[in-house]
Computed example of a mutant assay.
Amino acid sequence: MYVEDLCVVGLGRTRLAKSVHDVGWASFTAMLEYKAARHGRTFAKIDRFAPTSQACSACGRLDGPKPLNIRS
């Protein structure tokens, strides 16, 4: 399981504010992490500035922005 390292302060100013603050993002990711470990799953946080939508899903090569219809 992979989770993006979100900017919670920035999300607090959007329409998602109530959801983000109710859940407590840090406690939510901590729960995911220990439950993944308990069940033998992989857990990792992805940097919020990583260009994941620009990477090839097969080989991982970064080759620029992709249209929405080919992202996976």
Score class of each variant (00 low, 15 high):
residue 68 L to W: 11
residue 58 A to G: 04
residue 63 D to W: 08
residue 31 M to S: 05
residue 37 A to N: 03
residue 19 S to W: 11
residue 61 R to T: 11
residue 54 Q to A: 09
residue 70 I to R: 10
residue 15 R to M: 07
residue 16 L to K: 10
residue 44 A to M: 12
residue 53 S to A: 14
residue 40 G to D: 05
residue 25 W to F: 14
residue 13 R to K: 13
residue 38 R to L: 12
residue 2 Y to R: 10
residue 55 A to S: 05
residue 60 G to I: 03
residue 13 R to I: 00
residue 29 T to P: 00
residue 13 R to Y: 06
residue 65 P to Q: 09
residue 28 F to D: 00
residue 34 Y to L: 08
residue 14 T to P: 02
residue 4 E to Q: 11
residue 23 V to L: 15
residue 25 W to A: 12
residue 2 Y to Q: 06
residue 28 F to Y: 14
residue 51 P to R: 14
residue 23 V to N: 13
residue 45 K to M: 15
residue 45 K to C: 09
residue 59 C to R: 06
residue 38 R to F: 11
residue 53 S to T: 15
residue 24 G to P: 03
residue 33 E to D: 12
residue 64 G to F: 04
residue 47 D to T: 06
residue 3 V to S: 04
residue 45 K to T: 12
residue 19 S to Q: 13
residue 53 S to R: 14
residue 24 G to I: 08
residue 42 T to C: 02
residue 71 R to F: 07
residue 54 Q to D: 05
residue 54 Q to C: 10
residue 69 N to R: 15
residue 51 P to W: 07
residue 72 S to N: 04
residue 31 M to G: 02
residue 13 R to F: 06
residue 52 T to Y: 11
residue 30 A to S: 14
residue 29 T to C: 14
residue 16 L to F: 15
residue 45 K to D: 01
residue 37 A to Q: 05
residue 64 G to I: 10
residue 17 A to L: 04
residue 59 C to S: 02
residue 28 F to L: 14
residue 55 A to V: 05
residue 17 A to K: 15
residue 56 C to F: 01
residue 6 L to P: 02
residue 45 K to A: 10
residue 14 T to M: 04
residue 15 R to A: 08
residue 3 V to P: 01
residue 27 S to D: 12
residue 34 Y to V: 12
residue 36 A to V: 04
residue 66 K to W: 04
residue 6 L to V: 05
residue 58 A to E: 09
residue 67 P to F: 03
residue 11 L to C: 01
residue 24 G to V: 09
residue 48 R to E: 07
residue 63 D to E: 09
residue 65 P to I: 06
residue 44 A to W: 06
residue 48 R to M: 11
residue 21 H to L: 15
residue 31 M to A: 07
residue 55 A to F: 02
residue 10 G to C: 09
residue 61 R to E: 04
residue 32 L to A: 11
residue 33 E to Q: 14
residue 20 V to G: 00
residue 49 F to S: 11
residue 53 S to I: 07
residue 56 C to N: 08
